[in-house]
Design a protein around this nucleic acid. Structure first.
Length: 570
RNA sequence: UGGGGCGUAGACGAAUGGUAAAGUCACCGGUCUUUGGAACCGGAGUUUGUAGGUUCGACUCCUACCGCCCCAGCCA
């Protein structure tokens, strides 16, 4: 390895691909696919798979197909097809026109099924689903109520003649039998220790309208019968899926061998789990449908759409996927890893602005009434090319309520009676008077400023221990700010208190709406999706709910707060 | 129970028989700072699920055990 090359450890899948390419397998081609079922929205777990599949192809000058696995018309919709493509593009990947549907292969699959029947490797079975389960030896319990797995027994229809099978299968296609009356099954081994191999179903009768095939089909192929053959048709070299499909691999291989067609190889990696959230379509759907969140793009959701609306960047998500790596172990990644990647990217790219979330009025008593001025502010200290902007300053300002304490503890550096601090890009100010209402609440701070410190530096070299953000009261835009927090109160939402539902772990403060925020005026004109840092507070993203009068901002992620840590320690 | 997997610091994850185990997040301390941010420097922590075995030498090979996850849909 060259000296200036940094060592990048390969995960086990990349090791395999590397070895295959080097040995000339598949003529050195790398061709992957991402095969979502169009029955829901993509989430960050999918992002991991997308990054792996598309990333692998990029690394080896290969190709990646987008293939919709649309074999179950009861669940799939066009709406999801559009959204999934949109999300993959947003994440930063493209399939260059190689968009396919498993349903495009239904005719070929049907022919291959006929071929297997002729080879005596498939048969039409009349067992009901309960009977099939029983014959398979599934769901059997011993006296102690523990699950056992006795060998299955052959279906009484297993030995039908080829002719009869052909006839029945054709009539299944023609709609002569009611839904669920018969199935086509692979004839493998009813005593196989792997239940998947006990004569799995290849076709089921379903009189369902398919969103792409219309009413052409009355029987639909199962996942197992479809997936490997689709991979074969497309010339996929490495078919990557999550570990739950590992036990299906013998069947994947069996079909391909029985058909004697090109045989791609399946590899499995561990699916992603993240703390403080759920990552399964079933649970996400429940949250949306039961109204616990506002929709699939709710910023609290780990869906790609939700994270996009929240202000996460595709770069950050991709970097996160790179860092967590690929392995087969099933762990749970701390969400702080994701947040770190988001902060890291936004720190480099997000312009800084000033916004006061919990305003308290400050009157600069020695600043002329009715006067105002524009001050230069740096847009992003991390990016010299980001330039500067003008921020209005006047006699009446707002600062953050948290930035003042009447009786401050030793480690509190911010404003307090008699203390001087800096207003960012503006002046040093000193607090002289605290005005309270009849309830004893602070309503106003009366301060003086030092005109010599314009811009934030004292000519005499004196220092202050704190720099505060602020906005000019008469110029400020009033805004709604949505402060998001974790969706659940527990790292593992499924760790449920005795006798309660997992939704009992929902965080009641996962979003806190603030309508008192005051922003720099320029923020009114920003486009939805605009990402910025509210100095000293966090990263925020303008929400599409914004109106010309009321901008709405979502908190993407807070800045790290070491003062909070000091406080928490007491 | 059968079958398939997995077990390296709080979390993720390298190490493919050879200097008593990389990196990242989190954590702790410090420097710097017109963001108590960022950056930079430093620190702590595992002895590699357990017990045996092979070997000059094992996270890596073997045996047994333990724990966790997945399947038992005509879902994918």
């Amino acid at each position: 390895m060259a000296e200036n090359e940094t060592y990048q450890a390969l995960d086990f899948i990349r090791e395999i691909v590397k070895a295959d390419v080097e040995s000339g397998k598949n003529d050195g081609r790398v061709h992957t696919r991402f095969p979502p079922e169009p029955n829901g929205y993509l989430h960050i777990g999918h992002a991991k798979a997308i990054c792996l599949n598309f990333g692998l192809a990029e690394e080896y000058n290969g190709l990646t197909n987008l293939r919709f696995d649309d074999t179950n018309p009861t669940k799939e919709k066009d709406e999801y097809v559009e959204a999934i493509q949109d999300d993959i593009h947003w994440l930063g990947f493209d399939w260059a026109g190689r968009l396919y549907y498993a349903s495009d292969y239904f005719d070929q699959l049907y022919e291959w099924a006929v071929e297997l029947i002729k080879k005596g490797k498939a048969y039409v079975c009349d067992l009901t689903d309960e009977e099939m389960s029983e014959y398979r030896g599934a769901n059997v319990f011993n006296e102690e109520g523990k699950r056992i797995t006795p060998p299955g027994k052959n279906s009484p229809y297993r030995d039908r003649s080829v002719e009869e099978n052909l006839d029945l299968f054709e009539r299944m296609k023609n709609g002569e039998f009611p839904d669920g009356a018969r199935t086509l099954r692979a004839r493998i081994d009813m005593a196989h220790p792997n239940l998947i191999m006990r004569d799995p179903v290849m076709y089921r009768i379903m009189r369902k309208h398919h969103f792409r095939q219309g009413d052409k089909w009355l029987l639909y192929p199962t996942y197992d019968w479809t997936h490997g053959q689709s991979d074969s048709i497309e010339g996929i070299t490495h078919s990557i899926c999550d570990v739950s499909f590992e036990i299906h691999r013998p069947l994947y291989d069996w079909f391909l061998e029985a058909l004697e067609i090109y045989h791609p190889r399946q590899y499995e990696f561990g699916r992603l789990n993240l703390t403080y959230t759920v990552l399964s379509k079933r649970y996400l759907r429940q949250l949306v449908e039961d109204g616990h969140v506002a929709g699939w793009d709710d910023p609290r959701l780990p869906t790609l759409r939700g994270m996009r609306r929240r202000g996460y960047t595709p770069e950050a998500i991709r970097e996160f996927c790179r860092r967590i790596g690929i392995s087969k172990s099933d762990g749970i990644v701390e969400i702080q890893n994701l947040e770190h990647c988001v902060r890291e990217h936004l720190n480099k790219t997000a312009p800084r602005v000033m916004a006061v979330l919990d305003p308290i009025k400050v009157v600069i008593t020695n600043y002329p009434e009715g006067q105002s001025e524009e001050l230069d502010a740096i847009n992003n200290p991390e990016d010299p090319n980001a330039g500067t902007r003008q921020v209005p300053f006047s006699r009446e300002l707002y600062i953050e309520r948290d930035d003042f304490m009447e009786d401050p503890p030793k480690k509190f550096f911010r404003l307090a009676p008699g203390r001087e601090v800096r207003l960012r890009y503006a002046y040093f100010i000193t607090c002289h008077e605290v005005v309270k209402n009849e309830n004893g609440e602070i309503v106003e701070l009366r301060c003086t400023y030092d005109p010599a410190t314009r811009g934030g530096d004292a000519p005499d070299g004196r220092k202050v221990k704190a720099t505060l953000h602020w906005v000019s009261a008469p110029h400020a835009a009033r805004a709604e700010v949505r402060l998001y927090d974790y969706l659940f109160t527990r790292e593992d939402p499924m760790n449920v208190p005795e006798g309660e539902d997992w939704k009992a772990n929902l965080n009641p403060r996962s979003v806190v709406i603030n309508r008192e925020a005051r922003l720099e005026p320029m923020l009114k004109d920003a486009e939805p999706g605009f990402r910025c840092q509210f100095e000293r507070l966090g990263y925020f993203c303008k929400d599409p709910d914004s109106t010309p009068d009321t901008p709405v901002f979502n908190r993407t992620v807070a800045l790290k707060d070491s003062w909070k840590k000091v406080q928490d320690k007491g």
